[in-house]
Amino acid sequence: MIHSSPKKMLLMSLTMLTLVSTSQAQTFKCDVNGSVSYSQTPCITNAKQSVMDTPATIPPYSEKTAKEIAAKEKNDANQLAQSRHKAEEKNDREMKAIAASNAKKKQQCDAQQLKIKWAKEDLANAKPKAESQARQKVKRATEKAALVCGK
């Protein structure tokens, strides 16, 4: 029968704990055309590969610390969501204002086009004495439409 001294057993236990706590796992960093990914398995053949040693265990957090981290992350996520909603609402208001402005400009342009049409009809029906005045009316309506419609 083999007898071991308590000191020897303690020394072996500490050695084993040290080996377990310092063990490391390999992580593969793969770069394929600028797209970087991390994996526990080797990269595909056409990837640029780096091997990184990472601790096998993650340092333990107390329950309180974990709850604090979770609460902070939840708060940060809520703030980001609120910020995004405000930005989306602002964007919607701006888009509605632009759409309303464009609709108003189109309506003004359509009104000017109608005035040109009427001025041309008046020119076609004008008597010789009023023909010069009717041409001037067409010219002015066309110029105003160019300003309003941006043509």
Rank of each mutant, 00 (worst) to 15 (best):
residue 56 A to E: 12
residue 21 S to E: 02
residue 90 K to I: 08
residue 49 Q to K: 03
residue 76 D to M: 01
residue 48 K to A: 10
residue 40 Q to M: 15
residue 38 Y to C: 03
residue 50 S to Y: 09
residue 88 E to R: 02
residue 90 K to W: 00
residue 45 T to S: 06
residue 25 A to F: 00
residue 56 A to H: 12
residue 100 A to T: 01
residue 65 T to K: 15
residue 25 A to R: 08
residue 60 P to F: 14
residue 82 Q to V: 10
residue 98 I to S: 13
residue 48 K to E: 06
residue 40 Q to I: 13
residue 100 A to H: 04
residue 97 A to K: 11
residue 96 K to W: 11
residue 30 C to A: 03
residue 45 T to Q: 06
residue 49 Q to R: 02
residue 77 A to F: 05
residue 32 V to C: 02
residue 74 K to W: 10
residue 27 T to G: 11
residue 50 S to M: 10
residue 50 S to V: 10
residue 62 S to A: 02
residue 101 S to P: 00
residue 73 E to T: 01
residue 100 A to K: 07
residue 64 K to C: 00
residue 29 K to P: 03
residue 82 Q to S: 12
residue 55 P to H: 05
residue 73 E to L: 07
residue 98 I to T: 13
residue 28 F to A: 01
residue 75 N to C: 05
residue 88 E to D: 11
residue 98 I to Y: 12
residue 90 K to Y: 07
residue 21 S to N: 07
residue 50 S to L: 11
residue 105 K to V: 09
residue 66 A to M: 10
residue 79 Q to M: 10
residue 23 S to N: 05
residue 34 G to A: 01
residue 78 N to P: 01
residue 81 A to R: 11
residue 40 Q to E: 15
residue 85 H to Y: 13
residue 93 R to P: 00
residue 29 K to H: 13
residue 35 S to I: 07
residue 30 C to E: 05
residue 24 Q to E: 04
residue 95 M to E: 15
residue 25 A to H: 12
residue 34 G to K: 05
residue 81 A to L: 13
residue 74 K to N: 13
residue 89 E to F: 12
residue 82 Q to G: 10
residue 94 E to W: 10
residue 85 H to P: 03
residue 82 Q to R: 06
residue 87 A to S: 08
residue 51 V to C: 00
residue 88 E to G: 10
residue 41 T to Y: 15
residue 21 S to G: 09
residue 91 N to I: 02
residue 79 Q to P: 03
residue 54 T to Q: 11
residue 53 D to A: 06
residue 33 N to H: 12
residue 68 E to D: 04
residue 84 R to L: 10
residue 66 A to S: 07
residue 57 T to R: 14
residue 67 K to W: 04
residue 42 P to S: 07
residue 93 R to D: 09
residue 67 K to L: 14
residue 78 N to H: 14
residue 103 A to G: 03
residue 75 N to T: 13
residue 36 V to Y: 05
residue 78 N to W: 06
residue 77 A to M: 08
residue 89 E to R: 11
residue 52 M to F: 00
residue 29 K to R: 15
residue 41 T to A: 04
residue 63 E to Q: 06
residue 99 A to R: 09
residue 53 D to P: 02
residue 49 Q to C: 00
residue 26 Q to P: 07
